[in-house]
Amino acid sequence: MDLHIPRENSSLRQQVTDRLREAVLSGTFEPGQKLVERDLCEMLGISRTVLRESLQYLGAEGLITNIPHKGPVVSTISYQEAKDIYAVRQALEALAGEGFALHATDAQVQALRAALGRLEAINASPQSTHSLLDAKNDFYKILLEGCDNTVVGSMLTLLNNRVTILRRVSLSAKDRLPKTIKELSEIVAAIESRNAKLARKLCAEHVAKAAAVAMKNLGEPAGGQAQ
């Protein structure tokens, strides 16, 4: 992955932040990996001051952790944190699905169907995990824009980075993608029929199934502390 930053009109710090975020979310930088400032400055073609500002910003997003006497490392999501994230995501996405069925315009419903079509195309002709995550993020962006609940939208947006990391875990499981497509197809069908109650139920079930896969792959801590 070429991390070097071209000089453009947007702020350099923003460009660096976006590029580093993408590297973390795509798996270029793996959880627990130490980030060496000198190496990053050379790869990005920037000063250490700009880099540190960006790392501080990503730290606020929960993607980077600054460990005393070690420096910045890519954050690792613990079993308990993942469990908590899925619980919150399940409640919020159920509300988003219900709200979308009730309030989305016909154009937004059509856009959601089109986003599902892009996911189905990836399933039919497997592409990179990055392409898959981009397509799924597009699906949820449309869902949040049409749910008519700005609080749900803003809270899920705040969670999105860590949710994307967990999606990499759940979607990496064998046969998970076809099941995901089936579950999302049922959600879209419920939305198209404007069945808000069913859309809410199906959204909650979809997150619960994704959580079960991800939590299994993450592995429960010894002694079952996360029960």
Rank of each mutant, 00 (worst) to 15 (best):
L3S: 00
L3E: 04
H4K: 00
D18G: 02
V24I: 14
L25D: 03
G27Q: 13
G27I: 12
E37L: 10
R38W: 05
L40I: 08
E42L: 05
S47A: 02
S47G: 03
T49C: 03
R52Y: 04
E53K: 06
E53H: 10
L63A: 10
T65M: 15
N66H: 13
P68R: 05
K70S: 01
P72Q: 01
E81G: 09
E81T: 13
A82V: 09
Q90N: 06
E93V: 12
A94K: 14
A94S: 15
A96H: 03
G99I: 10
F100E: 04
H103F: 09
A107G: 11
L112D: 02
A114G: 03
L119M: 15
S125C: 04
P126H: 11
H130D: 10
S131P: 02
A135S: 14
A135H: 11
K136V: 13
F139A: 13
Y140R: 12
E145D: 15
G146T: 07
G153K: 14
S154L: 15
L159Q: 10
R162K: 15
V163Y: 08
L166M: 06
L166C: 03
V169P: 01
L171M: 11
A173K: 09
D175W: 12
L177Q: 08
P178T: 07
E186D: 03
E186W: 00
I187K: 00
L198P: 01
R200S: 14
R200F: 03
K201A: 04
A204N: 15
E205W: 10
V207H: 07
A208L: 10
A211Y: 10
A214Y: 04
G224K: 04
Q227W: 05
